[in-house]
Design a protein around this nucleic acid. Structure first.
Length: 375
RNA sequence: GCUGGAAUCGUCUAGUGGCAAUGACAAGAGACUGUAAAUCUCUCGCCUUCGGGCUUCGUAGGUUCGAGUCCUACUUCCAGCA
């Protein structure tokens, strides 16, 4: 069983700080986990990730299965060794791709879809996802889940039921692999169930009850796309899930409010592609909201992207320089911007953790969000 | 000097009688949430009450219902010959 110590519980009964003890190291929670879909955080080296304060990364089983193949990662000694991250790692199951790729067919066994790289037909099942994740060797695996294509109650219920069926199969396969593989390896690997149910609280409650009843090490909260209604949903779910297991909010964190609301209502870890994607497209976080560094008004702005920011980018370079790098399409533009944005969200969650420990969360939240969204 | 060729939005470019006129780049702005994302969208002659109005393809004339397109002259550039 994955060891998770809760170090402080916040007065609202949901938020907490803690430590997840993984075979590759500890994660102080709440924590922002870097999205390293193809075993790399785009535009950043693992050393840069360490330097900006990241504690863990999350890779995607679907992408690694297509390239370079999970056997190769196993041969390399696992995701941490292969990528030179050497810290705590997560893998997403590939379930999200069922939702996001076109031409996906749900079958008795799992899901068939076409490789976005070369169109090869490709099937993933709960069992094959577990096998792939064990081969990749991340510390924490996500159960193979299914998101509804539409937001109506019926489709959401069908997707949720399927996710539950698949969860049962994931748990069985995970336990089988744990007995056959882990006893020969130095490191155990852990499984999170994924709670679905969309925006419907009855479904979220049912899904949380189902997931809570299973032998899993933690929980992913899936199918969340906006902070609207998230607080209520998380209260519903986290009133049901056992408190002593960690919870990961899947895919959320592009907007700072996601991180505040997520942490406030009991999420321990987050991952999101937004910060690095927006960085590559020139949209940079500041305490006063996002700026588009490509805008002409930054041509002669010789101040840092965000005054006071401790990241490599802000300590050494100016907005005018970043503007120039973006306008001339230099690779370094994306590197520096990604360092800044990734540091920003990691740092916000670090500050949230500190404020929870100091019981100053409400003040920090109000001050941050007022400034960020009212400028 | 002679003989050919060429001049179109910031740049390159499409256009051989019929709707301010193609495409690319540049420029201006927007989007992005478990990454088919180094991506995508919009604007890009001037004005506009968004209906439309006005002025444009080197310059000046001409032919024509109608000219970026055909004719004449001029200007500039390119190539070849002197």
């Amino acid at each position: 069983m994955l060891k998770f110590d809760i170090t402080h519980e916040y007065e609202n009964g949901f938020a907490r700080t803690g430590v997840i003890h993984t075979p590759h190291g500890d994660i102080k929670t709440p924590a922002f986990v870097g999205a390293a879909t193809r075993a790399t955080v785009k535009a950043l080296t693992m050393q840069e990730m360490r330097d900006l304060g990241s504690q863990a990364i999350l890779a995607n089983t679907y992408h690694l299965l297509l390239a370079p193949g999970t056997d190769l990662i196993k041969e390399a000694g696992g995701l941490a060794e292969f990528s030179s991250w050497h810290g705590p790692t997560f893998t997403d199951s590939g379930g999200f791709q069922i939702f996001s790729l076109p031409d996906v067919k749900i079958t008795m066994n799992g899901a068939k879809f076409k490789s976005h790289i070369n169109g090869d037909k490709f099937e993933m099942t709960p069992e094959s996802s577990m096998q792939a994740q064990w081969a990749i060797g991340a510390d924490i695996h996500m159960a193979f889940d299914h998101l509804a294509k539409s937001e109506n109650h019926k489709d959401m219920e069908i997707a949720m039921r399927r996710t539950h069926d698949w969860l049962d199969r994931c748990v069985i396969e995970h336990q089988r692999l744990s007995k056959t593989i882990a006893k020969n390896a130095k490191a155990e690997q852990y499984l999170y169930a994924v709670v679905q149910g969309g925006t419907f609280n009855d479904l979220r409650a049912e899904s949380a009850r189902y997931c809570a009843s299973k032998e899993v090490d933690g929980f992913g909260i899936g199918g969340v796309f906006t902070a609207d209604g998230m607080a209520e949903m998380l209260q519903t779910v986290h009133s049901i899930l056992p408190k002593n297991k960690p919870r990961h909010l899947l895919g959320m964190g592009q907007e700072p409010i996601d991180l505040f609301v997520g942490a406030e209502f009991g999420c321990d870890t987050f991952d999101c592609v937004g910060p690095t994607r927006m960085a590559r497209n020139g949209s940079l976080y500041t305490n006063d909201g996002r700026i588009n560094i490509k805008n002409a008004k930054f041509t002669h702005d010789f101040s840092p992207v965000m005054p006071g920011c401790e990241c490599e980018c802000c300590k050494n370079y100016t907005r005018a320089y970043l503007h120039h790098l973006f306008k001339t399409d230099e690779i370094t533009a994306k590197v520096l911007a990604s360092i800044h944005n990734e540091h920003f969200v990691v740092n916000v969650v670090d500050n949230i953790r500190a404020s929870l420990q100091n019981n100053t969360f409400d003040d920090y939240k109000n001050e941050f969000l007022n400034r960020y969204y009212n400028n």
